[in-house]
Design a protein around this nucleic acid. Sequence first.
DNA 1: GACCAGGCACATC
DNA 2: GATGTGCATGGT
Length: 223
Amino acid sequence: MSPPLIEVYDRLLKRYGPQAWWPGQTPFEVMVGAILVQNTNWRNVERAIENLREEGLLTPNALYQASSGDLEELIRPAGYFRVKAKRLRNLLTWLHDRYDGSLEAMFETSVDTLREELLAVHGIGPETADAILLYAGGMPVFVVDAYAHRVLARHGWIDADADYYRIQEVFVESLPADAVMFNEYHALLVRVGKEHCKPTPLCEGCPLCELLPEGGPLGREDF
DNA sequence: GACCAGGCACATC
DNA sequence: GATGTGCATGGT
């Protein structure tokens, strides 16, 4: 039986309202943030992005020309700064070589092709690619993350060991392909995950547990 | 001091 | 193919 994802969405939207994601001022800033936020608190990413902004590096050409050493120091607050500096350079090099540094040209590519191209960039995996497609490009791609995984598994709506594509499939099967809603849905899952479906305590005051006949979470305690 | 945070690549079995 | 590990900072 498929999970009640429309009802979940309606409930979350009613409870929290629109989340106004992604917190980035330009598509390029969103792309940079998508790399920097990998397994990292957004607050730390903000510091790194502010550093880049102060140096005038939040454009494809400027960041492409920055030295690796400067880049590492500026993004240090976001953690994993050496690997992330390499990943940003991989993305920038690809963008420069393939699209002459133009996001407009990049997003003229069909979503399936662009996704494959992004995944071929070293350091960009499924979530980062999808975040770029949805939040920077406005393409109707559902972004799965650790929160989506935990919130759904916690309530018994997916297997705890479901992988990225399985979880994405669950959403895509039950929802219309609407970029605005996909955008909002992902942000709402992060919100409820942070506020109520924490690792511990288990779903305190969670608005989604009310949808369960048992009135409480079904998943394993480590979800 | 332990644990957590919008992942990903790589080594090893 | 599954499972484990390195990567690093900053808040609670």
